[in-house]
Amino acid sequence: MAVEESTRRVTKRRVRTRANLLDAAFERFAAKGFGRVSIEEICEAAGYSRGAFYSNFDSLDELFFALYRQRADLIAEQVAGALTLDGPGLDVPAAVDRLTEVLLLDRDWLLVKTDFLVHAAREPAVARTLLEYRARLRQAISDRLAQARGQTPLPAVLGDVDGAAHALVAAYDGVTTQLLLDGDVERARAWLGQLITALLTDGSDTTE
Rank of each mutant, 00 (worst) to 15 (best):
H166Q: 14
R36Y: 09
R144E: 07
S59N: 02
L154Y: 06
L158T: 12
Y48Q: 04
D162E: 06
A188N: 05
A19Q: 06
G33K: 14
F64G: 00
T129R: 09
R98M: 03
L74D: 07
A66F: 04
T177C: 09
L180A: 02
T7E: 07
E208P: 14
L181D: 05
L130A: 13
A127M: 14
R187I: 00
S142L: 00
A135R: 14
L85N: 11
A45D: 07
E40G: 15
V175G: 04
A188P: 10
E62R: 02
Y172V: 02
E123H: 11
M1N: 08
A167V: 13
P153L: 04
Y48R: 12
F29S: 03
R187D: 05
R36W: 09
R9K: 08
E27Y: 10
A140L: 02
D73Q: 10
R189E: 00
A46M: 06
A80C: 10
A25S: 04
E44K: 15
Q139K: 15
R189P: 00
L117R: 12
S49W: 01
F57Q: 01
G163Y: 01
L22G: 01
G150H: 12
D108T: 04
G35S: 01
D73A: 14
D73M: 10
G183S: 11
A171I: 10
Q78T: 01
E186Y: 07
I42D: 02
G47P: 05
A76W: 00
L131N: 12
Q151N: 10
E44Y: 15
E77S: 09
A120Q: 00
A171V: 10
I42R: 14
G47A: 05
S204L: 15
G47W: 04
L195K: 10
V102E: 09
A127Q: 13
A190Y: 09
L104Q: 05
K113L: 11
G33Y: 08
L154W: 06
K32C: 09
Y48W: 11
P93I: 07
G51M: 12
Q139F: 05
N20V: 13
T100A: 13
A24P: 02
M1S: 12
E62W: 00
R189T: 03
R8N: 10
A24C: 08
I42Q: 05
